[in-house]
Amino acid sequence: MNQPLAYIHPEAKIATNVVVEPFTTISKNVEIGEGTWIGPNVTIMEGARIGKNCQIFPGAVISAPPQDLKYKGEPSTVSIGDNTIIRECVTLNRGTALDKNTTAIGSNCLIMAYVHVAHDCIIGNNVIVANGVQLAGHIVVHDHVFIGGTSAVHQFVSIGAHAMVSGGSLVRKDVPPFIKAAREPLSYAGVNSIGLRRRGFSNEQITDIQQIYRILFMSGLNTASAVEKIEIDLAPSSERDEIVNFVRNSGRGIIKGYQRDAD
């Protein structure tokens, strides 16, 4: 049902059962899947690819040009997977030629109010980004991540699957998978055991993950030596390999273990 007070470009491709509320603007070169609800006062610009059964709340701006001086108007997109919720006043900027010309958000995500997702970010499935989070360009957020409210994430940072970042964090380094990150500067704060149990990880798997991070963050070894020790001492598993590969491929370096102040 399309309201007469909404503007929809005739070249936009919109499924027949999409609801578009009044005072929304939808530009050309936009695709919206079945069952999606577009609230009032939403702006959807060129290059938006929105999946099925999404909800986009008032004030959101989807697929605006990148806030990047290198952008020269090249074609690019923002893609949003199925069943994802975009709350009030979220801004999602499309990609640039420097990366893959796209910004992507997966399925079953919740992007809360006033979040900014900059150009070329890749967000996985089942991710929750709380109110006011600011994501700079070229960030990768893997599946099942939670980022607490008002956090700011530096460009090119990667956050591993099942990680939980405390609210108000300044994320300058990569956050490995399966952990909680908190304090300032952002540091390892334990394994995200509650989240892992909710997602079906066994006690044995969680214990193995904890042992990996004891070596990585609490053994006194540097990162390279700790990774070698993990591979030598611990049996192969999908979790072990995911952690090791993440750490080895970290572009910005990983966060550190918690260090108490001298006093």
Rank of each mutant, 00 (worst) to 15 (best):
S187D: 02
G33W: 07
T77W: 14
T77A: 07
I159C: 09
I212C: 09
A181H: 05
V90E: 05
N41R: 10
E74S: 02
L216C: 08
L92P: 12
V18I: 11
G253M: 06
A130R: 10
V171N: 01
V145H: 02
T150K: 06
D99A: 15
A104P: 06
I243G: 08
P4F: 05
V145F: 01
I206M: 01
S219Y: 00
P4Y: 05
E46K: 13
S169F: 09
A262N: 14
E21I: 01
A6H: 06
M218T: 07
D99L: 11
V140G: 06
C121E: 04
A163V: 02
A226H: 06
A161Q: 15
N83C: 11
Q205C: 05
E31A: 13
D233I: 01
F156H: 14
T96C: 07
A118P: 13
Q55C: 11
P58R: 03
E21P: 03
A152T: 12
G124R: 08
I50R: 04
G160M: 07
P75S: 00
P185D: 12
R240A: 01
G137K: 00
P10K: 12
A130E: 13
K229D: 00
G132F: 10
F201R: 00
R252S: 08
F23M: 10
V165L: 08
R248I: 02
G160A: 07
T24G: 08
E46N: 10
V78C: 11
V115A: 05
A48R: 10
Q67I: 09
S237F: 03
R252L: 13
Y7E: 04
A163G: 02
I254L: 01
A130K: 11
V140T: 15
V140L: 15
V133R: 07
R172D: 14
Q3K: 15
E184F: 11
Q259A: 12
K28I: 05
K72H: 07
L234Q: 10
P176D: 03
A48H: 10
V171Q: 01
I139L: 11
D241G: 04
M45E: 15
S219L: 04
N93T: 12
R240N: 04
F217C: 00
V127N: 01
L216N: 06
H119L: 10
G33A: 05
G137I: 02
G149N: 09
M164C: 04
S225W: 02
R197M: 04
D143A: 02
S27Q: 13
I111W: 04
A181E: 10
R87T: 13
I32F: 09
E88D: 14
E228I: 04
N41T: 06
N2S: 08
D120W: 03
F146V: 15
T91W: 11
L5W: 11
A136S: 13
Q210L: 05
K28Q: 14
D143L: 03
S237L: 07
G35N: 08
D263S: 12
E46Q: 15
N41Q: 13
F246C: 01
F246P: 08
A189R: 00
E242P: 03
L221R: 02
S27T: 08
Q205N: 12
K72W: 04
D99C: 07
N53P: 11
V19W: 10
Q259P: 04
G149Q: 07
I8M: 08
S107C: 09
P22C: 00
G251F: 05
F57E: 14
Q3Y: 14
G81M: 10
L98C: 01
E184Y: 12
P22A: 00
N17A: 02
